[in-house]
Simulated assay, not measured.
Amino acid sequence: MEPLVSIVTPCYNSAAFIKETLESVLAQDYKNWEIIVVDDRSSDNTCQIVEVFTKRHDCIHLIALTQNGGVANARNIGMAAAKGKYIAFLDSDDIWLKDKLSRQVSYMEKELLPLTFCAYKRINEQGKEISGQIPVPASVNYNALLAHNVVIFSTSMMLKSAVGDLKFSRAGHEDWIFLLQLLKRCGQGYGINHVLAFYRVRQNSVSSNKLKAIGYTWKIFRKSEGIGFLRSAVLLGRYAVSASLKRLR
């Protein structure tokens, strides 16, 4: 019996993209999955679109929140509802290739791995590819991830038992903080250097706002991880360089 994968998808005003995201999950050649869509009090028709899918597919679930609590809260609620051996995360505007789940589950089952991630390509809001393959290393530990976040969260899959009681904090780059905390527990994450996902770059996203991203990164080093000023400054410099190089690909 193939292990169940629980997919957690937080969404907020995602009507323009959520249909394509869900269809990419339905197209997976790995079939033992559930997806938990947590709507963070959208003001558009995101919920109505998702409800159409829930009526047609028993493995698609919608949790519609009555108050907006942010993406960290939505992910925590989705994780709490997850029943699978593995938890995968998929943002509501990103897309998976059809063999994404099968490759990751096969690799994790064979090697008994706690965390995997994969290479990807960037697309714009219209779905056009705007980068070549963004490669990933064969493995990453806490110090390596601290110096450079190589994991796009929509490519990650983790063993639920390894996650345990970890929760997302309400901070900028909450996915990066979560992965750092997870690596403190499990030691290493492992990369699959094949493009298995498309990461959508949106004009108004936090990741597209360079000054805001730098501010969040500084807070991770200083407050979340408790790193001294000088080392934080060095890490921030490395972050800026690696982020600039990534955008050139």
Rank of each mutant, 00 (worst) to 15 (best):
G78C: 11
A80V: 02
A81I: 08
A82K: 09
A82C: 14
G84K: 06
K85L: 09
I87K: 03
A88H: 10
S92N: 10
D93H: 09
D94T: 04
W96H: 11
W96E: 08
K98F: 12
D99E: 15
D99T: 08
K100D: 11
L101D: 02
L101N: 03
Y107T: 00
M108R: 01
E111K: 14
L112F: 11
P114Q: 01
P114T: 01
L115C: 04
T116C: 11
T116P: 03
F117T: 01
A119R: 05
K121L: 08
R122N: 15
Q126D: 14
G127V: 07
K128N: 15
K128C: 13
K128E: 15
E129C: 13
E129A: 15
I130E: 08
Q133L: 13
V136T: 02
P137I: 01
A138E: 15
V140R: 04
V140D: 01
N143W: 14
A144I: 04
A144R: 11
L146R: 00
A147C: 09
A147T: 00
H148Q: 07
N149D: 10
V151R: 00
S154G: 15
T155E: 09
S156F: 10
M157V: 07
S161M: 12
S161I: 12
R170H: 12
R170Q: 12
A171R: 15
H173G: 01
L180H: 05
L180Y: 11
L183D: 01
L183A: 08
K184H: 08
R185V: 03
C186H: 00
G187L: 07
G189W: 04
G191W: 09
V195H: 09
F198M: 13
Y199R: 12
R200H: 08
V201T: 10
R202T: 09
S205D: 14
S205V: 02
S205K: 02
S208E: 14
K210Q: 13
K212S: 11
Y216I: 03
K219M: 13
I220S: 03
